[in-house]
Design a binder for these strands. Structure first.
Length: 288
DNA sequence: AACCAGGTGAGGA
DNA sequence: TCCTCACATGGT
């Protein structure tokens, strides 16, 4: 895992970078931003209906990241059932409390906490970062990662379904990674493991599917989605799996890109969510 | 003051 | 396998 700070700005088709260290070089950033992806080819493969086509046109340029797996996993565990501004705050708090100092360009930054630091921390400390009832999950996930009970690097080797199974694994009726359900697992696979067919289904995507893609669902699920109040609709694991399968089969191997464009479209215009920034590997500490 | 947010876990029919 | 709830917290 690389810990550092990068200042990046785009000019035309170039990225101009200034970074804190040797390892944080152009090659690293190119990998992180997945600049090798042929976005034109990928989006062309997603032109299957006029709705998605318009959304892609509107948000063209949106890409997927290849985030650090540990950082991504933990971030999405903290993200469950909360909104984006709140998630940012929680992660910032964790970095301040348990990250390491990193001086760059005259400012102090904090690194994302390691699994070791989080495993050592008390539940109260973690909860104090605003995580609430997720604090024990975070600690347990950290323990599982730093003890080797789960090896996140295996996710690269496995195909999508096996990788998801690993993240959801149970031992003796106990979840290896509490706080990690299908949605969180899909996010980790899509944003940090290059499983581009992963299609995370959150409340926003559920609404998009209900209003634009109900025809592609299993009839039984379609009925439920159309009948119930979309605002309150929660999916059972089986329903999640079914919808996910339907969407992957409809959109193909780049379903995750479709999901990202649809997600952007769904949340845009929602003022409280604001622009979605990528999770950074280090955070600036605001002094006040 | 309810209701919502990049859901999940626990308990029971 | 299905439903129903509780869950901390901060923002409208």
């Amino acid at each position: 895992m690389s810990q550092g700070v990068a200042k990046v700005r785009q000019e035309g088709f170039s990225l101009l970078c200034k970074t804190s260290g040797e390892s944080l070089n152009a090659k690293f950033l190119s990998r992180y931003f997945r600049l090798e992806d042929n976005l034109g080819e990928i989006t062309a493969s997603l032109v299957k209906d006029s709705y998605l086509s318009e959304v892609i046109q509107k948000f063209y340029g949106l890409r997927l990241l290849a985030q650090d797996k540990w950082e991504c996993l933990l971030s999405f565990v903290t993200a469950t059932n909360s909104n984006i501004p709140s998630i940012r705050r929680k992660i910032d708090n964790l970095c301040r409390a348990l990250g390491d100092d990193l001086i760059f360009d005259g400012s102090t930054f904090k690194t994302f906490p390691t699994a070791e630091r989080l495993a050592e921390a008390t539940v109260a400390t973690i909860a104090g970062c605003g995580l609430g009832y997720r604090a024990p999950y975070v600690k347990r996930v950290a323990e599982a990662v730093c003890s080797g009970e789960i090896d996140l690097s295996e996710l690269n080797v496995l195909d999508y379904e096996d990788a998801q199974e690993l993240l959801l694994r149970e031992l003796k009726g106990e979840k290896l990674l509490p706080g990690v359900g299908r949605k969180v697992a899909d996010c980790v696979l899509l944003f940090s493991c290059k499983k581009d067919e992963a299609f995370p289904i959150d409340v926003w995507i559920t609404k998009v599917i209900a209003s634009h893609y109900a025809d592609h669902l299993d009839p039984r699920i379609r009925k439920k989605v159309e009948a119930s109040d979309v605002a309150v609709l929660k999916l059972s694991p089986r329903e999640y799996d079914s919808i996910s399968r339907s969407m992957r089969s409809y959109f193909g191997i780049y379903a995750g890109f479709a999901q990202q464009y649809l997600y952007m479209s769904a949340i845009s215009g929602n003022e409280s969510s604001g622009p979605v920034e990528p999770v950074r590997t280090a955070r600036k500490v605001n002094k006040n």
